[in-house]
Amino acid sequence: MSMLNKKKKSSTKKYTLTKPNTIFAVAGEMVPGKGEDSYYYATVENNSIVAVFDGCGGIGSKRYGNYSEKTGAYVASRAVCGGVKSWFEESPRQDEALKGYIKRALKVCDAYGDKGGRLMGSLTKSFPTTAAMVCVLDGEATCYWAGDSRCYLLDEDGLHQLSEDDINGEDALSNIFDDGVLTNVICSSKDFVLHKKTISLSKPGIFLTATDGCFGYLKSPMDFEFLLTRTMLSTKNILDWQTLMHANIREFTGDDYTLCVAAFGYEDFYSMQKSFSKRTAFVDQNYIKSPLPIPVKWQSYQKEYTKFMQQS
């Protein structure tokens, strides 16, 4: 079996990626100290990565005495995050090696995790976590993911989901409501698929990686786009934008939340805001204030939203 599930390159006119204008994370825990999300972002010369991990608290709820009574989900998201960090620092050009780094991190979890506990069945997995990563290397962006954390591109045309949810569900809207079961997740007890997709930008844009605590408690994907751009337009600088997003997500979410952001091709924060002002007004008018039912609005919204998914 191939190490990575390769998806075809999607491209129009190529826009060379260099250093991000800004790179940061917004993260919060439902219960302080017990959050099962983790993240990593870094820029080394012209290479960057934004990565999020969401330890699966359902199937990974076993607690390990050797890990200070933390759950397998808690340990897994951090261990896999460490594996990805090592890969980015040591051999980012060998993307076939990424899964190996992740597996080695999980092997260590297994080796030191106590073997107690008698629970069996398909609802138990050892050290399960999702992953969503966008890695910019040599001017090209590549997404890697497993589970229901998402990779996005936000540009003047709107929000585009780049990853495809590993969920037993219909689409990005139904996946919010149906509470669908994950069909693929990183774990130590079973093989998993690490999806890959290469993306070429044709204009300035912002790559985002997000755990479901950021988008899964909103009414629709349209609301997530509006949250991102409305908060951007309401603030004066990156730090304020970060703070406002944090406050907004915390207001509605019922889960730990982690959002990593890397913007490319903007002269400054003002030019970034300017490029999103028209689109934000359009989204507000047509998808937020519009009294039409959400499924109707989703019908018209999803063409642009799924543009990159359809190209795979």
């Binding site: 699966c56 608290g57 359902g58 199937i59 709820s61 076993k62 607690r63 759950t71 506990g117 629970l119 609802l123 138990t124 509470d179 079961v181 994950l182 479901d212």
Partner: peptide, 12 residues
């Protein structure tokens, strides 16, 4: 027991 309850209540 807590693991069972957590597994049922959380998304999987």
């Amino acid at each position: 027991y807590n693991q069972i309850i957590d597994t049922i209540t959380n998304t999987i």
